[in-house]
Simulated assay, not measured.
Amino acid sequence: MATLRPDTLAVAPDPGDPMLTAPVTAIDEHGEEVALRVVEERPLTIYLNAREIVTAMTVGDHPEWLALGFLANQGMLRPDEEVTGVDYDEELGVVVVRTAIETDHEAKLSRATRTSGCAVGTVFGDMMEGLEGLTLPAVSVRVSDLLALSHAINRTPSLYLEAGAIHGTCLCRGAEPLAYFEDVGRHNAVDKLAGWMRVERVPAGDKIMYTTGRLTSEMVIKCAMMGIPVLVSRSGFTAWGVRVARQVGLTVIGRLKGKRFLCISGQDRIVRDAEAAE
């Protein structure tokens, strides 16, 4: 299996960007000085029209996609909503998303809660709203594709390999990774992906979302609301995440390491092909 090259991705991590990491000095177990780079964290405040929505801690890249994806994944920006502008002020650390018509989001803000996610991790009391009646495409998943994706993504040049302490999310089709995002919070990485898909009008029905983070209820809900039928992680699950996945027909595969994995939803869609058996 070959290592994935950044130039084959529509969006790829940029571990060489000096704005995303900072140099520090540490002392190792032998008392020796060690130079290393650590991931940056910067506050990013998101506005929807004139209303301040949230301030998230983020690594700092792709702020416009992060803002769009966050608002869409929180149900504050509908798929048919006309976005007239996305303005980013780097000095202030502010993104303003403007819509043609004022949105009705005050009620959601009054019910905001903190979840188990890293960094922003904010969803709302009606987080299950929108899942009723949702049916995802029944997409088959070949084991050989899962193994190829795991091998390629884990060896792609990334901030994780450069500095650690970061999560990754990759949109894939079959065994082909398409776009790869990283951030200090796994929710931020997913929101960047959602924002990019919205801007580029990328169809979701035949895609796989690979994430390094835990498969909690909010991660499962975000994937389902984005219309992506398959969610894969090298990490584990929560009970509520399992229940929601089975409710909406999302194929969920976790603990993908080497040639091992566990499928907790959509098991009938797993294709154990010859290549995997070999």
Score class of each variant (00 low, 15 high):
residue 130 G to E: 12
residue 129 E to W: 10
residue 100 A to P: 00
residue 120 V to A: 07
residue 98 R to H: 06
residue 116 S to N: 09
residue 122 T to N: 10
residue 127 M to W: 14
residue 107 A to S: 08
residue 128 M to E: 13
residue 114 R to G: 03
residue 117 G to M: 13
residue 128 M to S: 08
residue 112 A to M: 14
residue 110 S to E: 07
residue 105 H to E: 09
residue 115 T to Y: 03
residue 100 A to H: 00
residue 131 L to N: 00
residue 110 S to A: 12
residue 125 G to N: 07
residue 112 A to N: 00
residue 103 T to E: 15
residue 116 S to D: 14
residue 114 R to N: 03
residue 104 D to V: 14
residue 120 V to D: 05
residue 131 L to S: 01
residue 110 S to V: 02
residue 118 C to L: 14
residue 117 G to K: 07
residue 122 T to Y: 05
residue 124 F to I: 04
residue 105 H to I: 15
residue 107 A to Q: 10
residue 115 T to H: 04
residue 113 T to L: 15
residue 121 G to H: 01
residue 123 V to M: 12
residue 106 E to H: 06
residue 121 G to C: 03
residue 109 L to E: 15
residue 106 E to W: 02
residue 109 L to C: 10
residue 126 D to N: 14
residue 122 T to H: 06
residue 128 M to G: 07
residue 116 S to T: 13
residue 98 R to E: 08
residue 100 A to M: 06
residue 126 D to H: 06
residue 109 L to A: 14
residue 106 E to C: 00
residue 119 A to T: 07
residue 98 R to G: 00
residue 126 D to Q: 07
residue 119 A to C: 14
residue 130 G to F: 14
residue 122 T to V: 15
residue 110 S to K: 05
residue 102 E to F: 02
residue 103 T to Q: 14
residue 117 G to F: 15
residue 128 M to Q: 06
residue 98 R to W: 01
residue 123 V to C: 01
residue 110 S to D: 04
residue 125 G to C: 05
residue 102 E to D: 15
residue 126 D to F: 02
residue 125 G to A: 13
residue 119 A to P: 00
residue 105 H to M: 09
residue 115 T to V: 08
residue 102 E to S: 13
residue 104 D to S: 15
residue 123 V to S: 08
residue 111 R to E: 09
residue 112 A to S: 05
residue 115 T to D: 04
residue 114 R to Y: 03
residue 118 C to Q: 06
residue 131 L to T: 02
residue 108 K to R: 14
residue 116 S to M: 11
residue 127 M to A: 15
residue 111 R to G: 06
residue 117 G to A: 15
residue 103 T to I: 11
residue 112 A to K: 03
residue 117 G to T: 04
residue 120 V to F: 05
residue 112 A to D: 00
residue 107 A to C: 04
residue 108 K to W: 02
residue 118 C to G: 10
residue 108 K to F: 01
residue 99 T to H: 01
residue 118 C to E: 12
residue 129 E to R: 11
residue 129 E to D: 13
residue 127 M to N: 10
residue 124 F to W: 06
residue 107 A to L: 10
residue 124 F to Y: 13
residue 112 A to Q: 08
residue 105 H to P: 00
residue 98 R to C: 02
residue 120 V to Y: 05
residue 128 M to A: 11
residue 122 T to W: 06
residue 106 E to G: 04
residue 115 T to N: 03
residue 117 G to D: 12
residue 107 A to V: 06
residue 118 C to T: 10
residue 100 A to W: 03
residue 104 D to L: 12
residue 104 D to H: 09
residue 101 I to T: 14
residue 120 V to I: 12
residue 125 G to M: 10
residue 103 T to S: 13
residue 111 R to A: 09
residue 98 R to K: 13
residue 121 G to N: 02
residue 104 D to M: 15
residue 128 M to Y: 09
residue 128 M to N: 09
residue 129 E to T: 06
residue 108 K to I: 06
residue 113 T to E: 11
residue 129 E to A: 15
residue 114 R to H: 07
residue 113 T to K: 11
residue 114 R to M: 08
residue 107 A to N: 08
residue 116 S to F: 08
residue 100 A to Q: 05
residue 101 I to W: 01
residue 128 M to K: 12
residue 100 A to S: 07
residue 103 T to M: 12
residue 101 I to C: 02
residue 111 R to I: 09
residue 109 L to V: 07
residue 98 R to I: 01
residue 121 G to M: 03
